[in-house]
Design a protein around this nucleic acid. Structure first.
Lengths: 336, 336
DNA sequence: CCGGTTCTCCGAATCGGTTCGACAGAACAT
DNA sequence: ATGTTCTGTCGAACCGATTCGGAGAACCGG
């Protein structure tokens, strides 16, 4: 079912069919109707490869995700979902490329095989070779998260520094003087993972500003790590009355450790953080938290489309600071 | 950087470059080396659209996922990840299409725009219009899960009936006589969702065979539902000493309800089930369970590649029955 | 020295669209 | 009546690869 077949049946030339479809030149009403009827009957749709070849664009976006070996967090999964939906709304398809290493066949195919019109990069490091690779290839791209040199690139990110700082201020307002930050895994922190770094920065600044005692510790991204991390914290730093965290995957473990230690939230201890709504609401009691916006992906797609349309415009950034939803996990500091 | 540019620089014709690359005809060593050097220098890679147009295949697989509005379960996420990785290993790209409704633009584009060589369909219902659409379009496809008419199509699935039955037998061997099945959500069961149906069938048969008392109940796919479901069960059926379940998302809630009721697992109550390893190991104590194989996606890709290669071969099925990993959540029935 | 192989390579056709220039005929103005 | 503009359509070129038929050279044995 190619365009020639349609043209033959309609008794017109191939170009007329093309124009009838695209509307880029006028076609008489009568001819257009005849063509449309045949297209409907045969369920014809133009061959994507042929169109891409001639037009020089693929109507496809690349989405580079962490390799499957690293379990995607719920937050990341939310990004993927919202990217895919936003792209679908713009009638674009999404090509997935699992990539973490530097020399990755899948990534290279996407970048240099002109399979996509632009790329969205997730889970980037402060120094990221993939970013430089994309820049050198001249392919439009947007990152979710940003590198150490954020000015030359388009990105959208969550302002972890501000959000964690707000958590600290909220807890300080409630009278808490000794606050702990439960950060992401030591490996991520060591690798220069942006959110972890910036959360720590925001925490430190807010703690200093309010004259509080702050403890910050790393914690693996799973329930078991959360459990042992909290046990250690309760053991070594009994003066702590409040916790701020951005480690949503550790929440179930934190909850378990608290329950085991017979610590009642928020009576004995307050917790606030940054987490996908799903995790915050699954916590007992429901977690006071800045809900990480699922529309991150939507924004990334918007930025990318802009960038594809006008590659020479100055790169735009989007730093999101969602409000903190007050739920049940924070309360006044316990009387001594 | 097209093939003509390479040819010009190497002083050969375009066809020679093509043959040097594909090896489908002999090219002298010296010429090949010269061409390869230029390709390496310019970092040339053939244009995917042009190749797809000529070859009639896209080297791309379509993966149809549930729409983002429905949160993907961990298991489904595992499938996606393993599909993507298996495809990457075979040097294939994966095009994502979120689709649930029947008239879906993204799905139609993938199916009829010849954007992919084959499709993997997840989360299918016993009656699924997308399956018939694919059959009518003549596009090779494999489903993860199977419909009510499984013989005409290729699929790979987990044998929930057998797995749940094995759990029951294991519990019966330990002396348990009163066993409950915690199934998936009532909506899914009502909608004719295969796994839920088959789990119930396997449970009923095993219970009958061993002469046990069985209770089966539906439970929403989240922690809160698991919690209330278990509270109700403990309240209404105190004689129950063991539980079998395939509802991994309810596990955290089940755990919480047991802890609250001061029921010690496995001393007072045993639990066994079917769950992704991640969930089973996150349970306290670690859950005796058949680990849902993450390689489902890998198998689906293998089947699909076979089907693409030989579309007229009889359709193959794969019913996986992973072994039950004995962990800490099952033990002998408590003395009365 | 000639006919037949073998080894290399080239030219041209092809895939299925889009788009540009041209052109016939109608409509309109002078 | 003649020139001009506007409409609707067509033919051909083009995007960048693959692939088939064949050309020319080297080499073989007879």
């Amino acid at each position: 079912m190619n365009i020639g077949e349609i043209a033959r049946r309609a008794g017109v030339s191939r170009s007329t069919v093309s124009y009838a479809l695209s509307g880029k030149r006028t076609v008489s009403d009568e001819t257009r109707r005849r063509i449309q009827a045949i297209i409907d009957e045969l369920d014809y749709r133009p061959n994507a490869a042929a169109r891409a070849l001639k037009e020089g664009r693929t109507r496809t976006l690349g989405l580079v995700i962490p390799p499957a070996s690293l379990r995607l967090t719920d937050m990341q999964l939310g990004f993927v979902a919202s990217v895919v939906e936003a792209a679908a709304r713009a009638d674009l398809d999404v090509l997935l490329s699992p990539s973490g290493g530097d020399h990755d066949r899948s990534f290279e195919r996407v970048v240099t095989g002109r399979r996509v019109d632009g790329v969205i990069l997730m889970e980037i490091r402060l120094e990221d070779t993939r970013v430089t690779r994309l820049q050198q290839a001249g392919l439009p791209f947007v990152t979710i998260g940003h590198t150490a040199h954020p000015h030359g690139t388009c990105w959208v990110d969550v302002d972890y520094a501000t959000l964690i700082a707000r958590c600290v201020h909220h807890l300080a307002d409630l009278g808490h003087r000794h606050i702990a930050l439960i950060n992401r895994s030591p490996e991520l922190v060591a690798a220069g993972y942006g959110p972890a770094q910036r959360a720590l920065a925001g925490f430190t600044e807010a703690v200093t500003q309010r004259g509080l005692t702050g403890v910050d510790l790393c914690c693996g991204d799973d329930a078991a790590a959360g459990e042992s991390c909290l046990e250690q914290l309760l053991d070594e730093r009994p003066e702590i009355t409040a916790i701020a965290t951005l480690n949503e995957a550790a929440l179930p473990g934190i909850e378990r450790a608290l329950e085991r230690a017979r610590i009642c939230v928020p009576r004995d201890l307050s917790i606030a953080g940054v987490a996908a709504r799903h995790w915050a609401e699954g916590f007992r009691p429901a977690l006071t938290a800045a809900d990480v916006p699922t529309e991150m992906g939507t924004h990334a797609v918007e930025l990318l489309l802009e960038r594809i349309a006008t590659p020479d415009a100055p790169p735009r950034h989007l730093l999101l600071t969602p409000p903190i939803s007050l739920r049940a996990s924070t309360g006044p500091v316990p009387a001594r």
